[in-house]
Design a protein around this nucleic acid. Structure first.
Lengths: 148, 148
DNA sequence: CTTGAAAGTACCCTTTC
DNA sequence: GAAAGGGTACTTTCAAG
């Protein structure tokens, strides 16, 4: 259910996606609005669930996770709860998409080394056939959607 | 190149990844540190490139992008610049991973409708064979890495 | 790393268009 | 209904210990 957003709302969203810590006064300046009007719009976007949160983004390399991989999993069997429990435990799984097609799940996995990645994939293999591809590089994490 | 991070640094990172807008005083309270010491650590993490930025996260549904898909692309030919130029232009491509294996690129694409997705995939198909899977659901965007 | 003071910022309320 | 202005509490920053 899409909200009714005007161009200013999209501007605010673009700014906040680019820099989630920008002070409201500075944000107001950038979107050519008063401080309180800007505050109200941001609060409205948060309350409406358009803005779901604010996160710091980190460099995996510098955190000691130089290995990134895309793992596709063809889950066998119909009981998916044990698999979901593994996802909760395994912080190495940064993201998990359930998709149509042969590969029911597409996972993004960060690991400290190849042996570490192997252990994670072994754990995943318990739930079905896996297909792993290492990631050479990725575009900057943020590519926000534009006004449709 | 991994930095030397102690347990407090990892605590700070966890808090900031969970709530990037938490006030420094509150953050200091949560990690049992003084405000200035916390500020210094955060600044150090930012300066070291461990923290790469702060982003607001948005709900694609509520922004009018109810369709999410994983597109795998087998790029044909060796000149990848035109493809990268398309990525710049197409804000619908939220993420693009270059990977090993048959499918050189794995993309996450948001679209306003199935016809819209079709147009994006058509544009991508110009560069090679594509394989598209719709996304049913995804885990909450944030799954941060833990202390190794 | 902690404490303390000053500047800046955010929040709430009222006023105005 | 939406935006601008003003007073108060809070946060951030910088100094010194």
């Amino acid at each position: 259910m899409a909200e009714t957003l005007d161009a200013t709302d999209w501007l605010i969203l673009a700014e906040l996606q680019h820099d989630g810590r920008v002070p409201l006064t500075e944000l107001a300046r950038r979107v050519n609005l008063g401080a309180s009007a800007t505050t109200e719009r941001v609060k409205r976007l948060e309350a409406a669930g358009v803005i779901t949160g604010y996160r710091a983004t980190v460099d995996l390399d510098r955190l000691g996770y130089p290995v990134l991989a895309v793992v596709r999993l063809k889950h066998s069997g119909s009981r998916h709860e044990p698999f979901h429990r593994l996802l909760e435990e395994r912080a190495e799984v940064l993201e998990c998409l359930r998709t149509t097609g042969d590969d029911c799940y597409v996972l993004k996995v960060a690991a400290t080394s190849m042996p570490h990645l192997e252990r994670v994939v072994n754990a995943l293999s318990f739930f079905g056939d896996t297909n792993t591809n290492l990631v050479y590089s990725q575009t900057l994490p943020f590519r926000g959607p534009r006004e449709p």
